[in-house]
Design a protein around this nucleic acid. Structure first.
Lengths: 264, 264
DNA sequence: TAGTGGTCTAGACCACTTC
DNA sequence: AAGTGGTCTAGACCACTAA
């Protein structure tokens, strides 16, 4: 038999899904359910905690437990890297992105810090550097209004970016066109990319930084950016609040028997 | 100030990351820490629950709390759809996949059920069908040994698969070459695909079916498969245990200013 | 059967929001 | 100040594993 808190949680979840409670509604107060004989305070609380972990509600001290608004996922396709955006246009890439998604732009939605660090193992591997080599790390925290949505840390080889705006530790995007534009101006035109992604539970630090409700997972994205000649010019690691993004990729079904051209 | 259980969890997490406990080791028993003055049983238990939600340990009743083995992620690239595997070879695609990843094959690692159902809204949209149209649903539960790793449900239009092996509800893969081979034989050669993925907390049902530790997220994958003429021949939804998979995609940086060919 | 983690209670107290 | 969710305790009991 399922625990009492699980049964209560399931019952409430069912009612939410059925529409008895709609987003924004308050669930009964914990003490009310205790009064109603659903169990002790700890038991009812456990049920509420489960609902929060499942993403159905958010609890606030002093306020109550509210059915969560499901914000539509922002769909990230490879079109977000369109060269036209950062090479020709006036807009900084991430602003263009906002424009395309119909969301308004606000100042200081992105904070960044730049520093010279010892490359973590993954970064060294991606760049083909020996362990412990120094790289520039450009860390951003991106927000949607007040709400942080993801972090993105780019790693560059010093010889690629030394002396450019990229290593100027001024808050805000790296000038017109963003990082790819700076690389382009420095003679490194990006050509192709590899993205690898996976999901995991958030660490306590990430949960705090991204203001995640307990139990909300994150998606970690590893992006490797190459020039046409295959040189890695950027390796970036992003940590995204899972409830805000979906990724989309289009591709041809490969056929190794037919053409042997394949990029490495 | 952080709650007592959080401080204890952080301290233990630190010790795990530092290597004081290595994968397979047992953490101190809850009652030992209670004895040691770390708090009441409920408090220590809360700390252990947090560590489990963060994926660091797994607790088992009657056994103890053990530091989790980090199994390497299985990396899923688009090469897994290589036509050579399912068109020319003798191997069923998913077996080829296993061979490639160096894992042994066991019988009955995949169970499937086929049924004619009303298309859920997403499915109808993907296939361009009116709401409520009937489609074939082919649901599989895929296991790695005893451990379920993901579910995968494919939806087909009846006129594409009626009379083929795909709608024969026999357990196991759909004969030589799997589903794509059947479609190929029926005159629908797959040509390109779209994959969309996002992560979320597991529902209680999924947690049970996939035997997920509490707090482990899932990745939901939506795969749309097209023929060269753009007909959708399969729409599939997968639900994956997040800790087991990573997805990888290679692509060219698009340039809308240069060539206007783009597949929608 | 002994020992483990998990559930549950009753009640005290704390942190926070709202008025 | 009143009322909310969150933490914590002390202790009973349950469900499960392993010898």
């Amino acid at each position: 038999m399922a625990p009492k808190w699980r049964e209560l949680a399931d019952r409430l979840a069912e009612e939410i899904r059925r529409g008895d409670y709609t987003p924004g509604d308050r669930l009964p107060h914990i003490r009310e359910l205790v009064e109603a004989g659903e169990g002790s305070k700890a038991t009812v609380h456990a049920a509420y905690r489960a609902l929060e972990a499942e993403g159905l509600v958010t609890s606030t001290r002093g306020h109550g437990t509210v059915v969560r608004q499901q914000v539509p996922l922002k769909r990230l396709g490879i079109a977000r890297y369109d060269k036209a955006k950062w090479r020709d246009g006036d807009e900084v890439a991430f602003i263009a992105d906002r424009v395309a998604s119909g969301r308004s732009y606000r100042r200081n939605e992105q904070t960044q810090t730049v520093s010279l660090v010892e490359a973590p193992p993954e970064v060294a591997t991606a760049h083909g550097l020996p362990a412990g080599a120094e790289v520039y790390a450009r860390a951003r925290l991106v927000k949607e209004g007040d709400q942080p949505t993801h972090t993105l840390t780019s790693y560059y080889r010093p010889e690629h970016v030394e002396g450019t705006r990229l290593v100027d530790p001024t808050p805000g995007p790296a000038g017109r066109g963003g990082g790819f534009r700076v690389l382009y101006d420095a003679g490194y035109e990006i050509d192709h990319m590899k993205e690898a992604l996976f999901a995991r539970a958030a660490t306590p630090d990430e949960a705090k930084l991204l203001q995640l409700p307990p139990g909300e997972p994150v998606v970690e994205l590893h992006r490797t950016t190459y020039t046409a000649s295959g040189t890695v010019v950027e390796f970036a690691i992003g940590v995204h609040a899972a409830s805000r993004f979906a990724w989309e990729y289009d591709f041809k079904v490969p056929d190794s028997a037919e053409n042997k051209e394949g990029r490495e």
